[in-house]
Design a protein around this nucleic acid. Structure first.
Lengths: 238, 238
DNA sequence: TGTGGCTGTTGCGTTAATAGCAACAGATGT
DNA sequence: ACATCTGTTGCTATTAACGCAACAGCCACA
């Protein structure tokens, strides 16, 4: 999986970029360097390079914040790439169940939704309602975490809190169950009585589809079949 | 503006990333190298590095597409950074005019909206409805282009089509007018009778606010004043 | 006003990481 | 079977990045 000759400048540069994106306040180069265990000069030069490109922006007091390029890049990759365009029509077909339809991807321990449509919402609005969510707290995240090996998951959550789970082992047995079943049925956090049904898309999985809301007893099989069909269709058209 | 020691690996890496984001179909490394005038080995290694990080993803036929990291990064930078959080309440106050309220940034020749609320849309939904738009076709883009020097704009559109304008000179005189007025009033493309009023936020400008829809004669001054107040408030709180 | 500790930033010698040729392996089409 | 694409890598010369140490600016406290 790792490269023959990986480019470390690019790796650290994007790490800096991500740190910048997740920082709640403007950060200076020395502080960022400390957070990421980087040499200060290096952090400073990477930040300046990002600023020069318009991906970062320097505030009046010379600290750094995400710049316009960040947002444009984001929007471009959502719409120009075929990801959504291909998946949209198939996701639409799931709305007949009057449940919330969601489509998202996993990165590290974070899920990003690309499509999120509660019943009744116009389709155009469902598209591009980007948002982030802890992977361990939702169906999409868990079903995608399950596509990683146990060792990978251990490494990911080593020495860290796991939102929604008490211990790492509880998470691992849950993931094991998902691998066997091929899907997950998971209670929706904060909405008693509601459940999420989620399955992965692609092999290896790179996204997941989910239906959530109040799911009648006995409807599970029908919904799962619909989800599987949609997952297959999306995979075919991408 | 340019760095003491810019990191060229990072610059080219992000250039590759952007090319990937704007590519309508999966691209291979040799093809991408040709598009960007890069050496093939270099392009290949940058792509592999991006893929390793999860920012790009390799399809079954070994071509590359934007990966999950791209989307997560996008969503994170939208919400975690204070940009929207700070601007939101002020943008809300503009909705009393029953016009479309928009807030966006410019990068190169492209505008990305961070907030876009037609009258009646719930506020939460207006947030994060990211989208991209050619800068020269809208009020936000034009008012931000005007904050660049004439030379910069010439360089940006050298030898290229300018959406919404016939010649580069027509654009330049329009921008000149904006610099004098401090705002723009521009017809909305594709909606006869509707206009956009836009002004820039920050000095130097890094974003712009706009009101658009059917604007009554004589209301311009009141709207402009409201826009200026909001622009000032947003600048203060960021 | 002076001192100490912070900040972002850079000049410059050293060195390690990247560049890029050339070659390989696998598709695909002729 | 040949030609021509494709993505990918081994290897080394060289170039670009590393990072120490120093500078300049800011703020607080004395």
């Amino acid at each position: 999986m790792l490269n023959a000759q990986p480019n470390f400048s690019l790796i650290d540069g994007i790490t800096v970029l991500q740190a910048l994106a997740t920082s709640e306040a403007p950060v200076g180069s020395r502080e960022l360097a400390r957070r990421l265990n980087l040499e200060t000069t290096r952090a400073n030069r990477l930040l300046r390079t990002l600023a020069y490109m318009g991906i970062a922006r320097q505030t009046a007091d010379r600290k750094y914040v995400p710049g316009p390029g960040m947002f444009v890049l984001a929007a471009q990759s959502l719409f120009a790439s075929g990801v959504i365009k291909n998946a949209m029509p198939h996701l639409e077909s799931l709305r007949r169940f009057n449940l919330t339809v969601a489509f998202g991807v996993l990165w590290r321990d974070t899920v990003s939704y690309l499509y999120h449509a509660p019943p009744g919402m116009p389709s155009v609005e469902a598209l591009g309602r980007v948002g982030v969510y802890p992977a361990s707290k939702g169906g999409i995240g868990l079903v995608l975490l399950a596509s990683n090996s146990e060792a990978q998951v251990r490494a990911l959550y080593a020495e860290r809190e796991i939102p929604g789970f008490d211990t790492l082992d509880t998470l691992l047995t849950e993931l094991h169950k998902i691998r066997i079943d091929g899907y997950i049925q998971h209670p929706v956090t904060g909405k008693p009585g509601e459940h999420t049904l989620a399955i992965a898309v692609g092999s290896p999985p790179h996204a997941a589809v989910a239906l959530s809301g109040w799911i009648p007893r006995g409807a599970t099989d029908e919904l799962l079949e619909a989800l599987r069909a949609v997952a297959m269709s999306i995979q075919m058209s991408s």
